[in-house]
Design a protein around this nucleic acid. Structure first.
Ligand code: MN
Ligand code: MN
Ligand code: ZN
Ligand code: ZN
Lengths: 123, 123
DNA sequence: TATATTATTGCAACAATGTCGCATTAATAT
DNA sequence: ATATTAATGCGACATTGTTGCAATAATATA
């Protein structure tokens, strides 16, 4: 399927760029000026993920958070940790690669690593 | 609240012991011979977590998985990786501690780290 | 053993998240 | 200007997890 540019996609992208954080569907919808249907927002986000512009984090609340990929993340298997601050509620990408010694026979395809605590802005 | 021993608690515990894997509410209910209400199962599992017998993993499907703590996990801040096999659908505890260098000012309270891929039983 | 206390349970209801089918709309190419 | 089909809105749905409340049952006490 060839992608088409639409105001909705642009609006969702703008919200993600402007925030600089990983955002849930909920938070994205809250920041949108335009009204966009929930299903549509999810479809847009999933499309961004397919296209490698965005990656998802599954946080401790079980919700999916969506964050822009920066260029260094384009590298294959560049899985990194995420930090979830319980005070300011932000979820951000850490500059820490996930690396571990798997037992023989195990093959890692992806990783979802979320560290929870308090961030540097919250004392 | 003082805990009471009940057939329901024992049954849930038996299922967890017998499986040796992290299990979702769903899977636990499926393995129970007794019929136990969904809310009750969740309450039992959450109680086990409070009491430090069980820990939870949030997997990529956004669901909570519950796994028995082995004795070495009683140690405070002993966060470890988990492995989720896409073929046999098992989620198991890895003997790999989560350790990372957080930027100054960050404080880690807990970690939810799930590596997805294929396990040693699935070639 | 009989009774009182209250933890536990079942039930119903609920909120939230995420997906899907289908008809309509609109972006793109010709 | 028109045809193609990707994108959208709407409604419906499945699933997960929690909560209030009344009924039940585990435990302690007399
Ligand atoms: Mn990230
Ligand atoms: Mn574990
Ligand atoms: Zn913070
Ligand atoms: Zn496997």
């Amino acid at each position: 399927m060839k992608r088409r540019n639409t105001p909705s996609k642009q609006a969702v992208l703008d919200v993600l760029i402007q925030s600089g954080q990983a955002m849930s569907h909920d938070a994205i919808e809250g920041q949108l000026e335009m009204d966009i249907n929930r299903a549509t927002i999810y479809r847009i986000l999933n499309q961004f993920c397919e296209d490698g512009m965005v990656h998802t984090i599954v946080a401790n609340d079980g919700k999916h958070y969506f964050a822009l990929c920066n260029n260094s993340e384009i590298a294959p298997s560049g899985f990194h940790f995420h930090f979830s601050c319980t005070k300011c509620k932000t979820i951000s990408c850490l500059d820490q690669e996930v690396q571990l010694n798997l037992p023989p026979g195990f093959v890692m395809e992806k990783a979802n690593c979320v560290v929870t605590g308090t961030c540097q802005n919250c004392v």
